[in-house]
Design a protein around this nucleic acid. Structure first.
Lengths: 162, 162
DNA sequence: TTTAACGTTTGAAAATTATCAAACGACGAT
DNA sequence: ATCGTCGTTTGATAATTTTCAAACGTTAAA
């Protein structure tokens, strides 16, 4: 096995683990890693072949990755039949934004539960109320900092790819 | 069912979903939510009873929650046999820090792969190299902003619980 | 010292999720 | 118009994860 193949294998491996750690499908990580490594866009057939899986799951996960804006379809001249894919230029940013949605959901939980506790207030304040207030503030502040990170990154990225 | 019970049920439900969305066990979310709602620390028996599960999984997940610093054991006077648990005062911060570890792991992946590509450089630069450079910068910048969020939160939290 | 309650561990069962092979519909190519 | 290739869908199977019940060791209470 050449050095390049070893690197490719490790990239696939580690992206799989990372995706799983974030609660996503391991195979999704494999697909991203493979496309990340490939200098050229790959067809579904290529992906299935290189990852040694069958068409079913690849087709489904490629769709999900597209929904998440992590990869995109690219038109290849001279091949009107096959779909080719490559990673989105802003993969990392999009991956982060997907995570941001989960954060926002937490803010929503806190806000809604807080309201419900408040409206059901029966004289004595329930301790969970205080916690929900804290939780909402926590995630709101987090959203602010996450957004400021995104602006900072946009600037930084321009420097890299100018 | 009283309003309070409805709120409790919804809290448990939604924390379960949220935990699952972050790739953790749904039951872990249930335990946290239950403890979050309870004004008093709960024993393992209470938790198993209230969640309608058996001792095995509760025992295991309580340990994992403790490892993650999301809940803690609390000594109860007059009850030397049972272990009682409550949520850590800084649950949200600790939950965030756990996530930060995953982020740091991503930084590590980028750094390591980048090095390997560089050391294996065979004349023509492989496109994955550029991507790894970008990835590392992305997650390093993220770490900076995450840390600044944590400092900001520490300040904010003092205001709430002063 | 004995007993009983407690938390942990463990092997099996249940439930969920991932994966495959095959069938299908769509659409260029011939 | 027909054929063949492509991506999707689907029902069955495999693999993984979750859950339970029972056995176990430990330790406070009697």
């Amino acid at each position: 096995m050449t050095t390049e193949e070893k690197i490719k294998k490790e990239l696939i491996q580690r992206f799989g683990d990372a995706y799983k750690a974030f609660g996503l499908s391991k195979l999704m990580g494999h697909i991203i890693a493979l496309l990340l490594f490939s200098p050229e866009p790959l067809s579904l057939d290529e992906i299935t072949k290189q990852l040694g899986r069958s068409k079913g799951p690849i087709s489904q996960l490629v769709r999900r990755l597209r929904d998440k804006h992590l990869i995109r379809k690219v038109w290849m001249p001279g091949n009107n039949r096959k779909d080719f894919y490559e990673v989105e230029p802003e993969v990392f940013e999009h991956a982060f934004r997907n995570n941001l949605e989960l954060i926002k959901n937490n803010t929503r939980i806190a806000k809604q539960l807080k309201e419900k506790v408040k409206s059901a207030k029966n004289g004595s304040l329930h301790p969970v109320d205080q916690r929900m207030v804290e939780m909402e503030k926590f995630y709101l502040l987090m959203e602010i900092h996450f957004n400021s990170f995104l602006t900072a990154w946009t600037k930084e990225r321009k420097k890299i790819y100018k």
